[in-house]
Simulated assay, not measured.
Amino acid sequence: MSQQHPPTPYSASDAIAMLLADHQKVRQLFREFDQIRAQRDEADLKAELVEQLCEQITVHSKLEQEIFYPALRAAIGDDELMDEAEAAHASVSDLIHQIEALEPDDEQVDATVTVLREQLEQHLSDEESNLFPKARQAGLDLDTLHGEMADLKQELEGDSGPRPAPGSGGRRSGRSGQAGGDKPSRS
């Protein structure tokens, strides 16, 4: 029997497909956050979602900054576009650090997550409409990049330890490892 794959213009082992999947995961976490943000009895779940969101964004950013962006910069030679993308990452990283410094029940968390969402959505849209098409046009070896990114992602997620599912009550204390608390390689 043949496997059924969702209709996409790229293979499952494609670097852009991996990044797009991360984009969708982040958007889903924001939707879940929106659904519970005003529910006082869901404070623990909200805190877990915020932690998971920050970790997901941080890992994704490292994949782009350490592997995808350098390859794309070399292939397209558009330093201005790449500098803008990296500046967006720095801004998002700053917001994540602000969120991580807040107590989970701090009223500022909701406002900062909202600003994070707005900035990140603009950045994701820019990537999807500008950077990713340029990567395809440049003829990058997206399968090889996918392999490198998958290895780094596994390493980063392994460093942060297992994440409990939202609502499981298994909240970890603190943010250890590269995926949550360390600054990204570019600031």
Rank of each mutant, 00 (worst) to 15 (best):
M1Q: 06
S2F: 08
Q3M: 12
Q3F: 09
Q4M: 13
H5P: 02
H5Q: 15
P7F: 04
P7A: 09
P7E: 13
P9F: 02
Y10K: 11
A12M: 12
S13F: 09
S13E: 14
L19Q: 04
A21K: 10
H23S: 03
H23E: 07
H23Y: 04
H23I: 02
Q24F: 11
K25E: 13
K25Q: 15
K25P: 00
V26C: 00
Q28L: 14
Q28I: 09
L29C: 06
R31N: 07
E32Y: 12
D34N: 14
Q35V: 08
A38I: 07
R40G: 08
R40P: 12
A47D: 13
V50D: 05
E51K: 14
L53M: 11
C54P: 03
Q56S: 14
Q56A: 14
T58L: 07
K62V: 10
L63T: 04
E64S: 06
E64P: 04
Q65R: 06
I67Y: 00
F68K: 04
R73C: 06
A74W: 02
A74L: 06
A75V: 03
G77A: 03
D78A: 07
E84H: 11
A85P: 05
H89Q: 11
V92M: 08
L95P: 13
H97V: 08
Q98C: 09
Q98G: 08
L102M: 15
L102H: 11
P104A: 04
D106S: 12
Q108R: 15
V109L: 08
D110W: 05
V115R: 11
L116R: 00
E118G: 05
E118H: 03
E121H: 00
H123E: 05
H123S: 06
H123I: 04
S125C: 06
D126H: 08
E128N: 12
S129T: 15
L131S: 05
A138K: 03
G139T: 02
L140E: 05
L140W: 02
D141C: 01
G147M: 01
E148L: 10
E148C: 04
E148H: 08
D151E: 14
Q154L: 02
E155M: 04
L156W: 05
G158D: 01
D159G: 09
S160C: 13
P162N: 14
R163Y: 11
P164L: 07
A165D: 15
P166C: 05
P166A: 08
S168W: 07
G169L: 03
G170H: 12
R171S: 15
R171H: 15
S173N: 13
G174K: 03
S176C: 09
G177S: 00
Q178F: 07
G181S: 10
D182E: 15
P184C: 12
P184W: 01
S185I: 06
S185M: 02
R186G: 04
